[in-house]
Amino acid sequence: MPMETHLPICMTALAFDRSLRDRAGDEIVFAILFQPRFLASNSAHEEALRVLDELGVEAIEGIPVRYVSVPVSDERDTERAVFESDADIVYVAPLRAVPLDAITRVTREHDIMTCSGVDAYGRAGLTLTVSARGQRPELVVNYTAMREEGVDFTAQLLAYARVLEFTEGTPEAGAAGRPTP
């Protein structure tokens, strides 16, 4: 799903999180997690910054948003980087050789919401992803992950989105868009 399509959808969906103000406080830190040495990840990061710049979203539900980039290289590094970023929302770019467990352990422990444009990451344990249903984008919410991360989406959004009631596992991220089996 192109960045221009799925990232605005993710940003819009954040407005339906009733726990956002409690989790974020006076400022929302939106972190973009990527692997600089992984081309696809790096490209996604740059494209995300561009799209966010074009969107110009400075506040969500009246709370100012600050965007940060979080480069990671391996599993241990990832866990630490996420924790130190002080992020409230982590957008996960395509990763390679980094298990999603390394991310979700931290996010679930510290009530940090995860989202991604990679369809498989939703089934693997990230809260919000955007997939394609035919020609249309489809919002996918992993309900288990959502509860674990302290996210409280409204019924409107849940009614609108496709809700997953399970998590296939926390595979190590392999090729872009493909969770490790």
Binding site: I9, T12, F16, R136, Q156
Partner: peptide
């Protein structure tokens, strides 16, 4: 109207 908020926000007329 309540249920129509997401489609309007996401620009999703099919929804």
């Amino acid at each position: 109207a309540f249920a129509s908020e997401p489609p309007l926000m996401f620009g999703d007329s099919l929804s």
